[in-house]
């Protein structure tokens, strides 16, 4: 259940950004959750809904976008099938995780500024 500490980091970051821009309110948050980010999207959403009370994010909807994990060959770009041994089927190079597969990213904040 590290989702709470991640939500805390998220809300702290949003508060800092809102302060920096003298925002009156925050309207929307969007976060991307990679399949191998170690984060359960449902738990993250629940944690957010609990934690946001009393913060600048109270009542602010959070849009989560899931990113499926995928592997490919860093040399010849051949994709490696899901669940397969992580070596390139064409040239046997050890695979590399594609961008976003293991990331938990705050994509954007929509805020109201004076």
């Amino acid at each position: 259940m590290h989702e709470y500490s991640l939500v805390e980091a998220l809300v702290t970051r949003v508060e800092a950004e809102a302060k920096k821009r003298d925002a009156i309110a925050v309207h929307k948050l969007s976060v991307r959750v990679g399949e191998l980010s170690g984060v359960d999207p449902e738990l993250f959403q629940t944690a957010y809904e609990t934690f946001r009370a009393g913060t600048i994010c109270a009542g602010v909807p959070l849009t989560l976008t899931r990113v499926a994990a995928s592997w490919s060959c860093p040399r010849c770009r051949t994709p490696i099938a899901r669940g397969a041994i992580l070596r390139c089927p064409a040239c046997d190079t050890p695979g590399k995780l594609d961008d976003g597969s293991d990331a938990l990213t705050l994509d954007g904040i929509e805020m109201e500024v004076p």
């Binding site: 991640l6 970051r13 821009r21 976060v31 705050l106 954007g108 805020m111």
Partner: peptide, 10 residues
């Protein structure tokens, strides 16, 4: 309303 693009790791 301004969209702030961050693309930053949480």
């Amino acid at each position: 309303l301004v969209p702030v693009e961050l693309h930053e790791k949480i």
